[in-house]
Every structure is written in structure tokens, then in C-alpha cells.
Design a protein around this nucleic acid. Sequence first.
DNA 1: GACTTTATACCAACCGGTTGGTATGTGCTG
DNA 2: CAGCACATACCAACCGGTTGGTATAAAGTC
Lengths: 204, 204
Amino acid sequence: MDTGTPLVKTKLLGAALALVRQNGFNATSIDELCRAAGVTKGAFFHYFSSKEALAVSATQFWTEMTGQVFAQAEYNLFEDPLDQLIGYIDFRAQILQGRSLAECTCLLGTMVQEKYDSSSLIREACAIGIFKHADDVEKIIRAAKAKHAPLASWTSESLALHTQAVIQGAFILAKAKNDVAVAADSIRHLRRYIELLFHHARED
Amino acid sequence: MDTGTPLVKTKLLGAALALVRQNGFNATSIDELCRAAGVTKGAFFHYFSSKEALAVSATQFWTEMTGQVFAQAEYNLFEDPLDQLIGYIDFRAQILQGRSLAECTCLLGTMVQEKYDSSSLIREACAIGIFKHADDVEKIIRAAKAKHAPLASWTSESLALHTQAVIQGAFILAKAKNDVAVAADSIRHLRRYIELLFHHARED
DNA sequence: GACTTTATACCAACCGGTTGGTATGTGCTG
DNA sequence: CAGCACATACCAACCGGTTGGTATAAAGTC
């Protein structure tokens, strides 16, 4: 069996996801990372040329991982694209349940806020992950719009981006309050907005 | 004239706002802070017992500063509370115009994302600032709801928090894209949501 | 198929610079 | 001359990154 990527590298990336989501990127030292992964520093620099390179790899790792989670989620099986969209929103809310903040928040949102100005490489890598996911959501929205609200003035793209903004912002409120419930509340507002948007369009 | 707070302390706090918004809290060193403020390290530790204490002071400084900005904004003069609310949203969008990311994003959102798990003091200080502002918005929403949508099922509190989530999330997308326009787009969706919410209520 | 070469995968020790923080000094004010 | 408001000098710990090295295995050579 060949997994393609060596075990040590995967362990380092896994440790990076956990530690960066908990303490942020700058506060996570390479030594700490190696300790968590049970790996020496030499191994780290064998696989990553720098801490910045690890960050970029981590965003790719994250994007693949989460991409699979969403691709395998139930809501994709719904027939009506509007049901898929609402299903996606509900799925985002469901992910919050029973999870600690570090377990349910977004690595990319966390990292880009720290590094957007100091590392264009990391900023760009985060952007790719975020907007790729937004694009997946946009496909659903576009189909839903074509079917239920073809004349609506809003674009599928801007609504897709808005869903991501709400979710990212919900995480920040949750971190401030140290309680994921407030994030679920905000996602519920997002759900209602989308319902109103499509409900309104049908009445036109 | 006695400003109450010494000039050196104010200069340090001002430098802290600028540097933390640009590079984050962890990436901002005390030396760098002193250099930017034109002050020695001795002066820093004369006014702040630790870097953490500076962070807490900075959140209070920020909350007072932004509190004044919103208190003096035009939208407060509108008669109808719903106009005030829409005016507030537009004001938030307007702030983005012509400003760099570091100049228009929220210190508290930036800081709480970095420190929510590692410093409960900073987390709490950020929470106070964020939820105080949300409370100001809630007062407007409560008045608007009483007048235009008294029977609506959503609470003023959760809608106020949602406005803050959207704005915070919009900043993250803007940082990822390195472009404030995407934030303005999301705030426009927030505006439409509120309009739909109140429009819908009137039809009941 | 024995022998050499080269590349890979790691490791422990170490490096210069920076970090948050301190200890001590100094000038100014009442 | 007491005390506050700073300035200077310094420190141990930690930072990201480099070093010189070893063990293993694949690849080329005769």
C-alpha cells in the first residue's frame, strides 16, 4: 500500500491543523509542532523548506480534507438544488454541535487573518481554499437560482461569498463568547435570508 | 489642559492599534511597538505590566474610539429606527471606501481569533468590546422591531449579533482576497436581509 | 550478482537573532 | 530630597533555521 505521502509529513500536517486552529499560526512554534507530531526538527525541514511552506501545505491539506467532507455530505443527494443549499447551511450548523471551538472553526480564516499582510504566499493559499469552497457552494446556488429565482437581482457568486462571510464571522463571535451557540444563531439567520430571497422571488 | 492619560501611553496604544491590525497581536513585538511610538521599552513597562495588559488596554482604547465614531454618525439622527438601522449598515459599508484593510478592519475580531484560547483576559476584553457594540445596534433594532415588526419571530439580540458576524466575516473574505470590495458586497446582502425581514413582517 | 554510487529519510546538536521581561540609573518636579 | 516618569543596559528563554552526520534503499556499472 502506498499512501503517496509519507507518514511523517502527514503527522506534521495533522498536528499543524490542530495547533494552528487552537493557538494561531504565529503562536505555533516548529518545536511545538514536532513535539506534537512525535517527530524531530530535522524531519520537519526535510519535508518543508520553511514554516511558511508548511502553512501553504497545511492549507492544501485542509482544503482536500474539508472538500471530501462536503462532497460526501447528504445534502448533495437532494433533488432540488434549493434543498441542497438549505441542506448545506444546515450541515454547516450541524458541524458545530458538540465540538470545541478549535475543532469546528476554519483553519484558513484563522490563518489569513494573521498573515494577510505579512505573507502573500500564505494569504494566496488561504484565498484559494476559501474561494474554491465558495465556488462549490455557488454551483448549488446557481442551479437553485435558475430553477426558483431566475430573475432575481443578486448574483450567485455574491450570495455564495456571503454564506462564507457569515460562517467565518460566526466563528469570530463564537470565539469571543467562548460558545459555539452564537455561531449557530447567525447561521440560522443566513438560512432565513436565503429562504426569504427565494420566497420573495417566487412572488414576483 | 489635562487629557487624563499621558501622551506616551496614548502613543503606545495608537501604535498598538495600527500594528496589531496590520500584523496581528503575536507578530507585533514590544520593541517594534516602542519604535513605532517613539518610546523606550522602559516607558512601555512603566504603563503596562505586560504585553497582555497592553492588549486589554488596547481593546478599551479601541472600544472608546469606535464608540465615539458611531455615536457621532449621521444615522443616529434619523427619526425612524428602521432608517437608523439601514443607515448603520450603510455606514459600515461606507467606512470601507478608500481605506486599506488594516485601516478598516476590526482590532477586536483580529485579536480574539489569535488569543481566544491562550489568554482568557484578552478574549474577555475583546468580547466586552464586541458585545457592547452589538448591544448598541440591538437598541436600534429593538426600536425598529417594536415599530415595524412587533410579531416577528426573530429576536433583536440575535439579529444584532448577526450583523456583527456578517461584518467580521466580511473582513476575513476581504483579507483573503486582498480587496475590500467583497466585504462591501456581503454587507449589501446584510442590508437586503434586514429589508426583507421588515418588509416580510409588514405583510403579515 | 557483487560493488559502487547516489538519493532519500531522517536525527541531535547547534547558531545567531529576537522575544517578553527586569534591574538599575537618571533627570525633572513639587 | 522624595517620588514619579521615563531611559539604559541587560537577561534567560525561545525562535526559525542550519549543520554535519547516519541508516537505508534504489540505481547504475562491470
